[in-house]
Design a protein around this nucleic acid. Structure first.
Lengths: 153, 153
DNA sequence: CACTAATCAGATAATTATATCCAATTTACT
DNA sequence: AGTAAATTGGATATAATTATCTGATTAGTG
């Protein structure tokens, strides 16, 4: 149901939220989250354009969350890569400006509304705080952290 | 969120359910539901293969629902054109056979579960019985019925 | 100031989804 | 039997998504 792009965006944002405050590179995120690296950069660019992430170029650069994980929800992440278009008017009734949807599209939109609500109500912080994290994710993050800033001192 | 194919499939099935028992042709359905005719035939073939619709060829042929609208739900229609794959295992943890999902994918799957439940719980009959049908759909169906079998008598 | 690590942006390729077209087949009616 | 109406299936075209690559840009380091 959700596109691969959405999947990747969510994974990347979780990775960022799971890190310490320092910028993470696309390579780090890609390896941790098993996302094609060069596609990830596109996905992250969307997050930057949407203002959810800050990017800094150059050495020691990378991506950092623009806000605290507590007020960054799943809906914003999804919207950044593929705008969520609720069904406003019945596509079968292009002329009528009546605000009501037909029963079919009312149902379809209701499903979308449920998803929207669920996603809006779930922050990155909430995702991180749960007690059954991906074992792989945990392990990867452990090994990545120490090996990162190592200017021979 | 839902692909165009899914949209078309739902529209077509509603059109069939709204008709009298006689077979409807792709052209009738396409015009009523504003779906590209030649693509609709592919969509309907999926419904036939899934056993939701019966097709009869030749003159006076067309498509008929295989079951009563009361026990044909939205989920079956969706599944016929694009199988709904719930998230069974965390894609980040390919090795572990642990049945638990990580918090992220648990959320994603939960959203899918909600949609699935909503769709499974909504039959074509229910959609037809609601009191705010598409004006266009109503009108089209009215005009189509009388003008159909008209061999110059 | 040059070098290097890193993102950014644009071009391009590959894959999938959407849509159309046409020949073959089936069926009913005259 | 012959013809018109209809689905079926295959081939093909177009558009959107997904993915990769390459050069340009930026920032830190010595």
């Amino acid at each position: 149901m959700f596109s691969r792009t959405v999947e990747y965006a969510m994974r990347a944002m979780v990775a960022l939220a799971a890190g310490d405050g320092r910028p993470m590179t696309t390579r780090q995120i890609a390896e941790t989250m098993k996302v094609p690296q060069s596609y990830l950069s596109k996905v992250l660019q969307s997050q930057v354009r949407a203002g959810l992430v800050h990017s800094t170029r150059g050495l020691r650069g990378g991506f950092v969350l623009a806000r605290k994980p507590e007020d960054l929800n799943m809906m914003e992440i999804l919207n950044a890569v593929s705008p969520y278009k609720r069904i406003e008017t019945c596509p079968l009734d292009q002329e009528g400006h009546s605000s009501d949807l037909c029963p079919l599209h009312s149902r379809l939109d209701m499903a979308m509304a449920m998803v929207q609500e669920a996603f809006e109500g779930t922050t990155l912080a909430e995702i991180l705080s749960e007690d059954n994290p991906c074992p792989t994710l945990q392990a990867q993050l452990e090994t990545l952290k120490p090996s990162m800033p190592d200017p021979k001192s």
